[in-house]
Computed example of a mutant assay.
Amino acid sequence: MPQSEGFEGDKQPRPPAMISATRGGEKQGAAERFALASFIAVPFLAVLAAIPVAWGWGLGWHDVVIMVVMYFTACHGITVGFHRFFTHGSFKANRALKIGMAVAGSLAIEGPIVRWVADHRKHHKFSDKDGDPHSPWRYGESVPALLKGLWWAHMGWLFDEEQTPQQTYAPDLVRDRDISWISRQFAFFTLTSILLPPLVGGLWSWSWEGALTAFFWGSLVRVALLHHVTWSINSICHAMGKHPFKSRDRSGNVAWLAVLSCGESWHNLHHADPTSARHGVLRGQIDSSARLIRWFELAGWARDVRWPSPERIEARRAA
Score class of each variant (00 low, 15 high):
residue 63 D to G: 01
residue 63 D to Y: 03
residue 63 D to V: 05
residue 63 D to R: 00
residue 63 D to A: 13
residue 63 D to T: 04
residue 64 V to H: 02
residue 64 V to P: 01
residue 64 V to E: 05
residue 64 V to Q: 06
residue 64 V to M: 11
residue 65 V to N: 09
residue 65 V to K: 09
residue 65 V to E: 07
residue 66 I to G: 00
residue 67 M to T: 10
residue 67 M to D: 03
residue 67 M to K: 03
residue 67 M to V: 02
residue 67 M to G: 05
residue 68 V to N: 08
residue 68 V to P: 08
residue 68 V to T: 14
residue 68 V to S: 09
residue 69 V to S: 13
residue 69 V to F: 13
residue 69 V to E: 11
residue 69 V to R: 05
residue 70 M to F: 13
residue 70 M to S: 14
residue 70 M to C: 12
residue 70 M to Y: 09
residue 71 Y to C: 04
residue 71 Y to V: 08
residue 71 Y to H: 15
residue 72 F to D: 02
residue 73 T to M: 15
residue 73 T to I: 15
residue 74 A to Q: 06
residue 75 C to N: 13
residue 75 C to E: 12
residue 75 C to Y: 08
residue 75 C to V: 12
residue 75 C to W: 05
residue 76 H to C: 12
residue 76 H to D: 11
residue 76 H to G: 12
residue 76 H to V: 12
residue 77 G to K: 08
residue 77 G to E: 03
residue 77 G to M: 10
residue 77 G to A: 10
residue 78 I to G: 01
residue 78 I to A: 06
residue 78 I to Q: 04
residue 78 I to W: 00
residue 78 I to V: 15
residue 78 I to D: 00
residue 78 I to F: 02
residue 79 T to K: 06
residue 79 T to F: 09
residue 79 T to V: 15
residue 79 T to G: 09
residue 79 T to P: 03
residue 80 V to L: 14
residue 80 V to S: 11
residue 80 V to H: 08
residue 80 V to G: 05
residue 81 G to T: 09
residue 81 G to N: 10
residue 81 G to S: 08
residue 82 F to K: 02
residue 82 F to Y: 13
residue 83 H to C: 04
residue 83 H to R: 08
residue 83 H to Q: 10
residue 84 R to I: 04
residue 84 R to E: 06
residue 84 R to K: 11
residue 84 R to P: 01
residue 84 R to H: 04
residue 84 R to F: 03
residue 85 F to H: 12
residue 85 F to G: 00
residue 86 F to V: 06
residue 86 F to H: 09
residue 86 F to S: 00
residue 86 F to Q: 02
residue 87 T to M: 03
residue 87 T to P: 02
residue 87 T to N: 10
residue 88 H to W: 07
residue 88 H to Q: 09
residue 88 H to M: 08
residue 89 G to W: 09
residue 90 S to W: 00
residue 90 S to T: 01
residue 90 S to D: 02
residue 90 S to Q: 02
residue 90 S to K: 00
residue 91 F to P: 01
residue 91 F to K: 03
residue 91 F to G: 02
residue 92 K to G: 11
residue 92 K to R: 15
residue 92 K to Y: 10
residue 92 K to N: 13
residue 93 A to S: 15
residue 93 A to I: 10
residue 94 N to L: 07
residue 94 N to V: 07
residue 94 N to T: 10
residue 94 N to Y: 01
residue 95 R to F: 11
residue 95 R to L: 14
residue 95 R to H: 13
